[in-house]
Amino acid sequence: MKSIALKDVVKNYYLGEVVVPALKSVNLNISSGEFTVIAGPSGSGKTTLLNLVGCVDTATAGIVSVGDEDTAKLSERKLTDLRLHTIGFIFQNFNLISVLNVYDNVEFPLLLRTDISKKERRERTLKFISQVGLEGHMHHRPNELSGGQRQRVAIARALVSSPKIVLADEPTANLDSVTGQKIIDLMKEINEKEKTTFLFSTHDEKIISHARRVIRILDGQIVTEQ
């Protein structure tokens, strides 16, 4: 079953008169449950690709389908809903809400939903906090945690609403290599357990070597697939 499909996707940025082509006719299919790495040097278009898949940006041309929906045909509201229900985000800078503690941060996406009871909210939040091994830090604020711990919180937050797809833009870039490896291992473990589709970008070769599927991108074009 196709989870993500990109067909002839073009993305141009416009800096005044200057056109910056970030993606040039990208075709890509990712099935559900896959664990895929997008690799490429800086400026190659990794973030741009994830933005399109994550429905936070729209393509200049081509079709971006997420879970069988053509994102170009959805309204702003619907796209937000789609992000809420089917996509989990893990960011390079963790992007936690600074004023909330670990528990509140993880619970946050569930609070945006109306279809989850209070009890279920609590169960799920606790479940994912323990899954990323932060039971002992539930009431800490982000600034009281290490980088690795913060990224774990972000992973728990991305997974708490059981999304079909988790997108991670260079999740290890701000971590040392050991911690980075641990985070990747954790993601992999969840991928196997929850059958969640993972798509993440990195330019760390060590991590790339551990991935099952690697898509290499250069100057906005997919060069190889392994």
């Binding site: 994550g54 936070v56 702003e76 509201r77 937000t80 809903d81 992000r83 809420l84 229900h85 996509i87 985000f89 960011f91 800078n93 992007n95 809400i97 600074s98 946050f108 996406p109 945006l112 939903r113 937050r157 609403s161």
Partner: peptide, 16 residues
């Protein structure tokens, strides 16, 4: 700015 952007990305509506 970034915090609000994150909330929007995670699925918060403008209304929120």
């Amino acid at each position: 700015y970034k915090e609000i952007g994150t909330m929007r990305a995670i699925g918060a509506q403008k209304q929120f």
